[in-house]
């Protein structure tokens, strides 16, 4: 039987380094377009100035292949592993080694700190860092997504265990209050991931993963698509604006996810992503072919 070359650690390592480099230097097309549209639509002068600076910075980062923000985040991977793919046990190791290499080569800011000793490991790896979310899917290919997640937007993520009696109304109020409390802190305009149900851990996991859905892809469920639009309009009526300096563009998009819930629980999680909404994905086929899904690679 012909050997499946997907197990090649080197391919995974190289692809992950490339993904990290792409993610921190170039925003995906949907985010770029949303920021350009935000600049056209923003009416406040202060807000427009911020968006212009964001666009200029984005172009400069792409052109010079420099990280667009000095905070290159904590590294999170999402892996969709084909059940028939061989060598899946090597992927975790390869992703850690790729993170170390990218930290030196790109470079990335070392952002993995021991919470007790406050010591920075210096290479962006540590206990559960990078964290890898695994999903087993049919097929023999492997899809890897990286999300370098900045600290400013992470610090305002909130989980609320609201009363089931309040239901969807409670959810909406919670989201509005959370956006207002966050204000300028998460470097708006933001993307919001909102998830309800599942339990405390699952709600936040779903909210964060929802940030990966492209901005131009509304929820496939029409009711949830409507809710996303409603929350988007509500957040953009707060007046917080780009960088909290006032304006109508506070969020670029809202992504809603849900899971069924315990009758007594109504967990609502709100995950924030800053304007530097960095992500990059690639698919490695069983024949070793690599296809980049979020970025053009020449």
């Amino acid at each position: 039987m012909e050997e499946n070359i997907l197990i090649n650690e080197k391919i995974v390592d190289d692809v992950a380094v490339k993904l990290l480099q792409l993610a921190v230097t170039e925003l995906p097309r949907d985010v770029k377009e949303a920021l350009q549209r935000a600049y056209r639509e923003e009416e406040s002068e202060a807000g427009k100035t911020q968006l212009k600076a964001i666009l200029d910075n984005m172009e400069l980062a792409e052109k010079t292949r420099t990280p667009m923000c000095q905070d290159t985040g904590v590294i999170i991977f999402y892996v969709k592993a084909g059940a028939q793919a061989k060598g899946l046990d090597k992927i975790g190791y390869a992703l850690r080694s790729a993170t170390r290499r990218a930290t030196k080569e790109v470079p990335l800011r070392p952002n993995a700190v021991d919470p007790f000793t406050q010591k920075n490991t210096g290479d962006n790896t540590g206990r559960f860092v990078p964290f890898i979310h695994w999903e087993i899917v049919p097929g023999d290919s492997v899809e890897i997504t990286v999300m370098p997640k900045g600290g400013g937007s992470e610090n305002v993520c909130v989980l609320g265990m609201i009363s089931p009696g309040q239901g969807v109304k409670g959810l909406k109020k919670f989201v509005v209050d959370t956006v207002i409390n966050a204000g300028a802190k998460p470097c708006p305009p933001n993307i919001l991931g909102v998830a309800v149900g599942g339990g405390a851990d699952i709600a936040m996991k779903l909210a964060k993963a929802a940030l990966l859905r492209p901005l131009d892809e509304p929820n496939p469920n029409p009711d949830l698509a409507k809710l996303e639009k409603e929350l988007y309009e509500a957040a953009n009526s707060t007046g917080i604006g780009p960088m909290g300096l006032g304006g109508k563009i506070t969020v670029l998009g809202v992504k809603v996810e849900y899971a069924h819930r315990h009758p007594a629980s109504y967990p609502v999680a709100v995950a924030f992503q800053c304007w530097a909404a960095r992500r990059a994905s690639a698919r490695i086929s069983s024949d070793g072919k690599v296809e980049y899904l979020t970025h053009k690679v020449t």
Partner: peptide
């Protein structure tokens, strides 16, 4: 202080948003 001005306006908008959402 522009940030304080924005915060005041945001606070004023809160009730209007609640109303629109019916919450």
């Amino acid at each position: 202080n522009l940030f304080e001005d924005v915060q005041k306006k945001v606070e004023e908008s809160r009730q209007k948003i609640y109303q629109k959402l019916g919450v």
